[in-house]
């Protein structure tokens, strides 16, 4: 390159513009939630929790789906990259599941009159959280391939709970509200302004998920690199 000037690869600029896009989407979502969307008549302002609660829940499902797919490929190919992807997505899934389990009761207290009830949907979501916390505990030791394989099996089996949660919302008579975004027959129970607000919130959460997944995978990759280097240093120093 003339004059020693280095040309940057377009992908190296990815984190900057992607972070900006995520930030803009989040600001747009907040504007829609607090300014644009109308106040629901029956529930009042507390209904606005719905936009981030359901977006967190859908992002959590996406995260656990990534764990499911990456775990299958890891068991098949034994490539570290898939194990790191599954572990990173599991941590994010637990984060978003925690947000669902916190914001749900905050909405439920003024609407139902209780913080928590052992309703099938709520219980299954708590079970899902416990499954993937167990996954992360099992996966805490990054150097043991046997633990990685067991964790991958748990990541696959644990995903069975996800369709059960969806099914419990639709079919079981419980306290949790029935689906409003997409109802049976493909219709929606949301007015256009609320639907748009929800879609903007969901897009912002999915962008945030991809951004965080990339950052978390960089941590996983560096931890692996550190382990390899430590091994090399030990060999060089002590033979």
């Amino acid at each position: 390159m003339a004059g020693g000037e280095k040309k940057r690869h377009p992908l190296s600029l990815w984190p900057g513009w992607y972070a900006t896009l995520t930030y803009v989407a989040m600001v747009a979502a907040l504007w829609c939630i607090f300014v644009y969307a109308p106040t629901e008549k029956a529930q009042g302002i507390v209904q606005r929790i719905f936009y981030f609660h359901v977006s967190s829940a859908m992002t959590m499902f996406v995260a656990f789906f990534v764990v499911f797919v990456a775990s299958i490929i890891y068991l098949w190919k034994h490539a570290d990259w898939w194990d790191q992807t599954a572990m990173s997505a599991a941590e994010l899934g637990v984060l978003f599941c925690t947000l669902v389990l916190i914001t749900g009761p905050i909405w439920g207290r003024p609407i139902w009159g209780v913080w928590w009830t052992w309703d099938p949907t709520l219980t299954l979501t708590l079970v899902l959280w416990l499954i993937y916390v167990a996954y992360l505990m099992l996966r805490a030791d990054a150097t043991d391939p046997r633990r990685a394989r067991f964790a991958a099996v748990l990541g696959i089996v644990g995903f069975i709970d996800v369709p059960l949660i969806r099914w419990s919302i639709e079919k079981w008579r419980n306290l949790h509200p029935e689906p409003v975004v997409v109802q049976s027959g493909g219709t929606t129970g949301l007015p256009p302004a609320m639907m748009l607000t929800f879609l903007v919130s969901l897009a912002a959460f999915l962008l945030l998920f991809v951004f965080l997944l990339r950052q978390r995978m960089a941590v996983a990759r560096r931890r692996h690199e550190l382990e390899v280097l430590r091994h090399k240093v030990d060999e060089a120093l002590f033979g």
């Binding site: 009042g44 507390v46 606005r48 929790i49 967190s56 925690t98 916190i102 914001t103 905050i106």
Partner: peptide, 24 residues
């Protein structure tokens, strides 16, 4: 009515997300 529930929910979400980004 119920302002504090709304405020708490969004404060918790943003605090948790911010803490996670800082940790990463």
């Amino acid at each position: 009515k119920n302002f504090w529930y709304l405020f708490s929910a969004y404060t918790i979400i943003w605090t948790a997300l911010w803490a996670y980004v800082v940790y990463l």
